[in-house]
């Protein structure tokens, strides 16, 4: 009797409360329209049928800020990033524009990073930017979490706004993807919580005042109202792991590149939001 009771209660409580509506994100009265719910990629079979933008889980005021480019505080940083794109710096006397011309040339990139480079290493957008800065401009590398880096990644991401996330997970990317997947299901820290506990088993639930999303990255860099700043993916990962009372990984480490790839692949099919607004 006692054992039957324990058994019946021992299946993990998995709520997965679906969003009440899945309205698209319609920006500037119709200029850009982005789906917020799309079928899950094949590799998530058994976990999700549908994948959702984190936008759906935010309150209406926060949502509204992303619907108008004049209201979206992240767009100021996009403009600053474009200025930086055109600024000559370093011994080679070049700007990004000297080689790449207009920033529109970066269209499509955000949907495909992180990706494996010619040397077989997994690189995030930040790595490509710093490679050009150090090797092609003879300028200093930018700090992963610094304002200039975030502004540039925001400006480059905007060029892919609306394009579906489509990171490669096979071929040379596969070992990195496996590593990231392993991390996603590892229960870190004294609270013994994995990404999957919160973002797979319990999206739609409330963890006190926080409404859990599926933890997608298609909106990054995110303008976060709580921090009043752009937040990079690695910074978000660091915060989520710290909250499990764990020793986190540093931003720009191989572990976070692998996790970035795996989390991005969970969102394959969701549109790049350019710079999203979250609270």
């Amino acid at each position: 009797m006692a054992s039957a009771l324990v058994l019946a209660l021992s299946s993990p409580a998995m709520a997965q409360t679906e969003p009440e509506h899945t309205d698209p994100i319609v920006i500037n009265g119709g200029e850009v329209e982005m789906q917020t719910a799309v079928p899950a990629p094949d590799h998530l079979e058994g976990a999700f049928d549908q994948i959702y933008s984190g936008w759906l889980f935010r309150d209406t005021e926060t949502q509204a800020m992303q619907l108008d480019d004049f209201e979206n505080p992240g767009l100021i940083f996009v403009d600053q990033g474009i200025d930086d794109w055109n600024t000559v710096e370093g011994e080679a006397g070049k700007s990004c524009a000297s080689c790449h011309e207009g920033i529109e040339s970066m269209e499509g990139l955000r949907a495909e990073v992180p990706k494996v480079n010619a040397e077989g290493e997994l690189w995030a957008m930040e790595d490509y930017i710093n490679d050009c800065r150090t090797n092609r401009m003879q300028a200093e590398a930018l700090d992963w979490n610094g304002g200039r880096m975030k502004n540039l990644t925001a400006a480059i991401s905007m060029q892919s706004r609306g394009m579906p996330m489509n990171v490669a997970i096979d071929g040379p990317a596969q070992p990195y993807w496996e590593q990231g997947k392993e991390m996603y299901y590892t229960r870190f820290g004294q609270l013994e919580l994995a990404c999957a506990n919160c973002h797979e088993d319990h999206y739609g639930d409330w963890i006190r005042a926080d409404h859990l999303s599926q933890g997608m990255t298609n909106g990054f860099p995110v303008y976060r109202l709580k921090q009043a700043a752009l937040v990079s993916q690695h910074n978000r990962f660091r915060g989520c792991i710290r909250d499990t009372r764990a020793e986190t990984f540093a931003m720009g480490t191989d572990e976070f590149r692998a996790l970035e790839l795996y989390v991005a692949s969970r969102g394959n099919g969701l549109p790049v939001e350019g710079v999203s607004v979250r609270h």
């Binding site: 021992s10 820290g189 004294q190 013994e192 506990n197 319990h202 710290r242 009372r245 764990a246 020793e247």
Partner: peptide, 30 residues
Amino acid sequence: KKTFPESMMPGFYKTSGFIRPGDAFTGDAG
């Protein structure tokens, strides 16, 4: 987890056996 295997509920009187144990909410190693 001794009552509900795999439970999401943390152990409130448990002090070791963690993966990457941290120093409270600092993000540093504990």
